[in-house]
Simulated assay, not measured.
Amino acid sequence: MKITLIANDTTFIYNLRREVLAKLVEEGHQVTVLCQFLSHREALEQIGCRLYDIPIGRRSTNPLADLKLLCKFFQILRTIKPDVVLTNNIKPNVYAGIVCRVLGIKYIPNITGLGTPVENSGKLQFLATRLYKYGVAGADTIFFQNEENVRFFEQHHMMSKKSHLCLLPGSGVNLQAHPELPYSPGDVVHFLFVARLLLETM
């Protein structure tokens, strides 16, 4: 199969999706990645992926930039004609989802989080929820990574009734790349903080 994965950038994909890509390549699928090039580009190419550099502008709210992104997705997906597209992150889910729906390409969005424009009430939320609704409208299956996002989508009627929902237990951690280390008692206290910090701007 010709499989395309779309996400914000190579760093996200390398840290959280490289095992998936490696398995798909190992099974003989032709894998293409659309994202912004940051770090780990060469490592993804060594797996056997074909990469396209697309500036996503994940924090941008410029409608002209988003329209340009939409057109870029359309141009590339129409050219490579994948059998299925896997999308991650907000803008790929929305804009690549819209393009896949127009082109009749099967796609599976992964809702890894909602983001500030969707979560905070106001005019921007009104627009963002409707864009998201249109972006996932043609998806047969929608992956979610937490129950709160599922409830938000249901409460705001952002999913088609025909869509199948699949709640994933997170992205997981590669324990070979991040092995458990023995505890070394001493003057320094070591602790594990499992979370991420995001700067939200209004």
Rank of each mutant, 00 (worst) to 15 (best):
M1C: 01
M1Q: 09
M1P: 08
L5T: 04
L5W: 08
I6T: 03
A7R: 06
N8M: 01
N8F: 04
T10V: 10
T11P: 09
I13S: 02
I13G: 05
R18W: 09
R18M: 06
R18G: 03
V20F: 12
A22Q: 13
A22K: 15
A22V: 01
L24D: 00
Q30W: 10
V31P: 10
C35R: 07
Q36S: 12
Q36K: 13
Q36E: 15
Q36Y: 08
L38M: 07
L38Y: 11
H40Q: 10
H40G: 10
R41C: 12
R41P: 02
E42D: 12
E45F: 03
Q46W: 01
Q46R: 15
I47N: 05
C49N: 10
L51T: 07
Y52Q: 02
P55S: 08
I56V: 13
G57V: 12
R58L: 04
R59L: 06
S60H: 08
S60Q: 04
T61Y: 05
N62I: 14
L64N: 04
A65F: 06
L67N: 03
K68S: 13
K68H: 11
C71A: 15
F73Q: 01
T79H: 14
I80W: 04
K81I: 13
K81Q: 15
D83A: 05
V85K: 08
L86A: 06
L86E: 09
T87H: 02
N88D: 01
N93F: 09
N93E: 08
N93S: 11
V94Q: 00
G97C: 02
I98M: 14
C100E: 01
Y107C: 04
P109W: 10
P109C: 03
I111D: 00
T112K: 06
G113T: 05
G115C: 06
T116L: 07
P117Q: 05
N120R: 13
K123N: 03
F126P: 00
F126Q: 14
F126C: 08
L127Y: 05
L127S: 02
A128T: 15
T129S: 08
L131R: 00
Y134S: 00
Y134N: 09
A139K: 06
I142Q: 11
F144Y: 13
Q145K: 10
Q145H: 11
Q145A: 00
E148S: 13
V150K: 07
F152V: 02
F152D: 06
H156S: 05
H157P: 00
M158Y: 02
M159I: 11
K161H: 09
K161F: 02
S163T: 15
C166A: 01
P169A: 03
G170S: 08
V173F: 11
L175K: 14
A177N: 11
A177K: 15
P179I: 07
P182F: 07
P182S: 09
Y183W: 09
S184I: 10
G186V: 05
V189W: 12
V189L: 12
F191L: 11
F191V: 14
F191Q: 00
F191C: 08
V194N: 10
A195R: 05
R196F: 12
L197E: 09
L198A: 12
E200V: 12
T201S: 10
M202K: 12
